[in-house]
Design a protein around this nucleic acid. Sequence first.
DNA 1: AGAAATATATTACCGAGTGATATAGTTGTC
DNA 2: GACAACTATATCACTCGGTAATATATTTCT
Lengths: 107, 107
Amino acid sequence: MAKMKPPRSRLLEAVHESARDLHRVGWIDARRLRTFDALCALEVPSLSAAQIKRLRGKLHVSQAVLAAVLNTSVSTVQKWEIGEKRPGGTAMKLLHLIERKGLDAVL
Amino acid sequence: MAKMKPPRSRLLEAVHESARDLHRVGWIDARRLRTFDALCALEVPSLSAAQIKRLRGKLHVSQAVLAAVLNTSVSTVQKWEIGEKRPGGTAMKLLHLIERKGLDAVL
DNA sequence: AGAAATATATTACCGAGTGATATAGTTGTC
DNA sequence: GACAACTATATCACTCGGTAATATATTTCT
């Protein structure tokens, strides 16, 4: 079993390992294995404060609404946009999801 | 301006307020306003430790994979399942999303 | 049985998340 | 213009979630 890709990150490394195992065990076939390749899209780019603010602007939603959608507090969204705090892993994931698929994707 | 609903939560309250405003301003029509009613589905049920563990089991993914999908650490997923830590707002949102729509919804 | 990989636990630290509140800035209404 | 209502910005203080690193089962393959 050869490593198929240079490790983008430790997390994605784990993904490929597990995917390989699942395929070997039979949980997933070759076709579905490609689905896991789509997992490479998991790379979350880590949006900057300004990018978050612009994203919300494009969505035409208030900070309160965005906070509600993300199930977090307005205060938190605030600090993200100011740059006082950086979104955590799961928060970045959601923001990235919305950026790519739109708000509806997370409703 | 009358409050239209008993406050389910402060966040959802904010959603309805803003939605009403958007509608008044003309950003969204009556049809799309109902989309915001779908936002009531934002109510995130707060999964228990056992529920998270069972959810991952149903998905047939390892903790490493789930952690990668959620863009968080394995250690964190661990503590969720043990019950040592409770997932934050954004994490709960993602878990709830997966529970309803499946893994693909967050890829 | 032994090696390799995964899952479970433990420890310790930092900073994200949160609430509360106060202060501008905006927009609409009279 | 003045006033009201809402949104955004900012500050403070706290705590608890997120994270790394490590160690220890538990499983699985050779």
